[in-house]
Amino acid sequence: MRAVVLIEPGPVENLKLADLPVPEPEPGWVRIRVKAFGINRSELHTRLGLAVGVTFPRVPGIEAVGVVDAAPGSDLEPGQQVAAMMGGMGRQFDGGYAEYTVVPRSTVVPFSSDLPWEVLGQVPETLQTAYGSLTTGLDLRQGQSLLIRGGTSGVGFAAAALARDMGATVFATSRSRDRLAALAERGVDHPLLDDGDVAAQVRAIVPEGVQAALELVGTPTLPDTLAATAVHGTVCFTGMLSNQWTVPDFYPIGYLPAGVRLTAYGGEASDLPTAVLQRFLDQIASGELSLGPATVYRMEEIQRAHDDLEHNRVFGKLVVLTS
């Protein structure tokens, strides 16, 4: 089979397209014929040597979509459409950047859809992260206001779609004025140009601040996101588009505005119920929900795809088709 192998941490040239044996699944594991996989910041962190506990060489990839090829001792049948994500994929064992991947059953979520694979490839980890952030992280409710910091990321677009479907008023940011129209086209009520002082823009519209905020950029923008949030509102720290995720010399009393709650979210496949995935896919198919834009690559273009991600040349989700 063809697979992308990360020889060792470093530049994009360390991602090599190679021929590897098709892996054999043990009982309780599932071999998936991969049709598409998303590219995530997590894999960028692995390539840059920022991930902990990864051995090399390694096939990266924390997610994939495809069909079951073999599933000994499992409830899954060959030919079943599935998504796989997290659980050590691409770090503790080889991940989704391949024509076949073998993963634990616990990482697999079955579904049924006629959507093309390049669309399905956008969904698993993006939806899991957005859904978990809004529900577990923020407990978002109908009628509340939500700020998405980093709105033109794949998770940002998914979170906006879910939040609108939940009945929230959505604010979302982009650092590029040219991308604000894409937010508006997908139902964002208040697209905001991120000039570093988003809190002032938010409070010009809702003086008390938003009731919920999803931080996808990282620690550089977190103080401003906290400042945009109302007393008794909640900020969920989920993303690190900036590649910065720690706060030096964190002093909570001086850092957190009085009465504003700060939480975080990082989930697994088990945090995305099958029914939620299926409903989301059905709503995309019916036109009720709209995903953000995707840039689609072939496996031979993996170096270019990683370079585009690292340098923020494209927005929305990056998806690779295996054939």
Rank of each mutant, 00 (worst) to 15 (best):
H311E: 06
V30S: 07
Q303R: 15
E8T: 14
Q283W: 14
P23W: 04
L140K: 09
S112L: 02
L318A: 12
I205M: 05
G121E: 02
E208I: 00
R149L: 09
G316Q: 05
E268K: 10
L216V: 02
P257K: 02
V217C: 10
V59R: 04
L120A: 03
A160M: 05
E13W: 12
V235I: 12
T221C: 08
P273I: 02
G38W: 08
P257R: 01
S286E: 13
A227Q: 13
D307Y: 13
V102K: 02
G132E: 12
D282E: 14
G316N: 04
P293V: 06
G121K: 07
R279F: 00
V102S: 03
E301V: 07
N14K: 15
V67A: 00
T136N: 14
L289T: 06
V231E: 12
Y297T: 05
G150E: 09
R47Y: 04
R177K: 15
Q201A: 14
H232S: 13
L241H: 05
D224F: 08
D114H: 09
V276H: 07
P124L: 11
S174R: 03
V82S: 06
E215D: 14
G61P: 05
F37Q: 03
D139S: 15
S106T: 13
S106Y: 06
G121L: 03
F93D: 00
L50I: 03
P23S: 04
P248L: 10
G28Y: 13
P9K: 07
A158P: 00
A51C: 05
R41Q: 13
R179Q: 15
L192N: 06
S113H: 09
A130R: 09
L309N: 12
F93L: 00
D282A: 14
T129A: 09
S42W: 08
K317Y: 04
L15S: 10
S323Y: 02
V68C: 07
